[in-house]
Amino acid sequence: MTALGTSGTLHLKSLTKRYGAFTAVDNVDLQIQRGEFLTLLGPSGSGKTTILMMLAGFQDITSGDILLDGRSIVQTPAEKRNFGMVFQGYALFPHMSVRENIAYPLSVRKRPKAEIDARVGEMLELVRLTDFAHRLPNEMSGGQQQRVALARALCFAPPVLLLDEPLGALDKKLRVEVQAQLKDIHQRVGTTFVYVTHDQEEALSMSDRIVILQQGRIEQLGTPSDLYQRPRTAFAASFLGKSNFLHRDGATYALRPEKIDLSPAGKGSNANLVSGTVLSVTYFGSQLKYQIAVPGMEAVEVDVDAWRGGGTMAVGADVDLSWADAAAVRLDE
């Protein structure tokens, strides 16, 4: 992680937001490191956007505090916080050209024209839109508009960039492409990114750390592989990737579909072994996804790499399921 300057450490202390009787954000404590790419991940209504709006200064907080480099910013109005923000739907100024959009944060700060021109040029290069400087936003594709929004938000070198589901409007293929660009830009500018999404793939592929939120509380916090390999709750295990749940000795275990070995009945070889029959099989190119009926359990999902061969198990075939001890993760109650 490379950090520019000294700013960009955020500390959320017991942050709470209530609307009447409804608690949207419930006592959230979070430290965000300088230069970090932190994702707030959760379903709609989990409070992730509310947290972002409180950081941006568009929502009052009910109680708690937000510290930037140790100083409280809750009394600071949005325009004085100097946080860049990329909105869902981009929120570009439709009456301004790409260049004017990107120059806006500098021109409202009354910077000299030469400085603005130089900086806007750099930004256009960063997002590779130099040839589009004179276009209006509605003359560009969604992906290009998204890059304009990013350049505009980064133009004044903010210590923190807030992103509210910025890829939501893009189609799937473009989204994957833009994820890579976003990650690359993050590494080059070294700004702290706080990213809100409900898309687990986005969260896994870009973040340094992920916060899983549910009903206004932090469900679990950690690096992508931490969360994927060692989910602590059933919600975390099923929201980030897929999981089968086993109930053993009064505890619940999460077991990822790809960590289960599937073999014809009688050929299984592991301490953890159950028998079942194939309910369905679906071909996905790289993987075969099986649904297996196991007596006394919900249907178990098993993913098998298609290239391993060994043939497809037919629907109705008897099979053995087995897994290593470490594959089943014990969940908190």
Binding site: M85, F87, P94, Y104
Partner: peptide, 21 residues
Amino acid sequence: DGRVVQASRSLGATGAQTFWR
């Protein structure tokens, strides 16, 4: 779109600047 106004504020424009520009 209300977000356009929010965007202007988040980019450092005062209320008056947001209105005129």
